[in-house]
Design a protein around this nucleic acid. Structure first.
Lengths: 226, 226
DNA sequence: CGTAAAATTGAGCTGTCTCAATCAATGTGG
DNA sequence: CCACATTGATTGAGACAGCTCAATTTTACG
């Protein structure tokens, strides 16, 4: 999964040179994780920026009574959040969805690299803007869209991201999300998510099985999206 | 309103020197606006970063069928969004809530100033992080909190921000939001917002009248918040 | 093979919406 | 300074999207 997104950019920048001298410290060891593992807890203080190199994870906020809201899904190659460049504290938790691994990049060195390299700076600025844009879309989903619209949009959003990563083959792609993840991301209950997905399946739009998502009628699905 | 937030920082940095030479262009003229005016439309391309100097505004996303989701309220002294430092296109619209005015700061010059001044950089990074944090909280509100919780939190959030601006006097503050704004920010309908606010009033927690918000039992209100 | 996690389904229930009417406040032109 | 027009607040009756709870089946995995 080394070839993807920021992770590859960072590694390719010569920031990681296991054998060489000065730069060796910028990357902490590759840290593997299991499905359902809590990678970082809400309010954790971090001196480095973790990047998911392999596997899926989610950022989430938890209320004191246990309710959980997933803020975003983290796909292979994605940084947890660019916010950590400017702030020590995470304000959400990170839950692993599948097994995988992450690497952590030292904040100070990453900042230095960012100021030194325009390419790096732009890449990070872009990542920041995407984060914010995605958050604003989710706000709108939760505030003003129906359950069918929310779920369709979530599926299509994942689909488009997977496509960019080259992980879509034909009309199918690996898709490790459980219905509980979809529920916690869309502000619905599992029971209801199940019913809506059932309807989409009945309608011949999609098929989810064996950890794979298949979209049979993407045009129709997009139309459900408004 | 010159003394507040980023606006003052920018002006104080000598970025605006109406009489002087080189820097005079950094600020476009002060632009006054009316209540209910659309300041910027969704997807508008901007070469400058507007800062609300006076009055209240809101950023919002609109769906094709007219549904509106308010993403954030902009109080006096606040920049529309730091995202514009790195991207030309606004992805939401800005609606004025009260009469007021804004100033626009040239992007290129602002970026230069940011790189030149650590203070400025930190201030902007802080503004960015607050934006993102606020968005994540709103996502959680909309996805996982009840209508009473959402409304209480909105009121308290405004209250805390107003307090920082020194705009709270005793247990009361100017509060120009209409119920429709509260509805569009919390993902509810005006009718329902009205009922919940009625309950809060009955309970002796708050009073909203004459464009002013009065909080009579802030502890109890915070407890509704979870 | 046994156990835990995930998916599915059904029968109510309820929070919030829709629609519609009324009333209050604010602003505007004459 | 009044009459009208517009915007905003309030209220009620009925409807429904999505929830709760609970049972059952399927799938994954040590």
């Amino acid at each position: 999964m080394r070839g993807l997104g920021l992770c590859s950019l960072l590694l390719d920048q010569g920031l990681e040179q296991p054998q060489a001298g000065a730069h060796a410290a910028i990357t902490q060891a590759r840290r593997p994780f299991e499905a359902r593992e809590l990678l970082f807890h809400q309010h954790e203080s971090l001196d480095s920026l973790p990047v998911i190199c392999d596997g899926w994870a989610a950022s989430a906020l938890r209320l004191s009574d246990g309710r959980r809201q997933i803020l975003s899904f983290l796909l292979p190659g994605e940084m947890i959040t660019t916010g950590l460049l400017f702030e020590q504290h995470l304000h959400f938790s990170i839950d692993a969805i599948t097994p995988g691994c992450y690497r952590s990049f030292d904040r100070a060195q990453l900042r230095a690299a960012m100021f030194a390299s325009p390419t790096m700076f732009d890449k990070i600025a872009l990542a920041y803007n995407e984060e914010k844009h995605r958050a604003d879309q989710l706000i709108t989903d939760l505030g003003r869209r129906t359950s069918t619209e929310r779920i369709s949009r979530l599926l299509l959003d994942c689909w488009d991201r997977l496509e960019k990563l080259g992980l879509v083959e034909g009309n199918s792609a690996e898709f490790p999300l459980r219905q509980i993840h979809i529920a916690d991301a869309t502000g619905l209950t599992v029971a209801h998510v199940n019913k809506i997905i059932g309807q989409l399946r009945e309608g011949g739009l999609i098929e989810i099985s064996d950890r794979a998502l298949q979209i049979n009628d993407i045009a129709k699905l997009r139309r459900l999206t408004i």
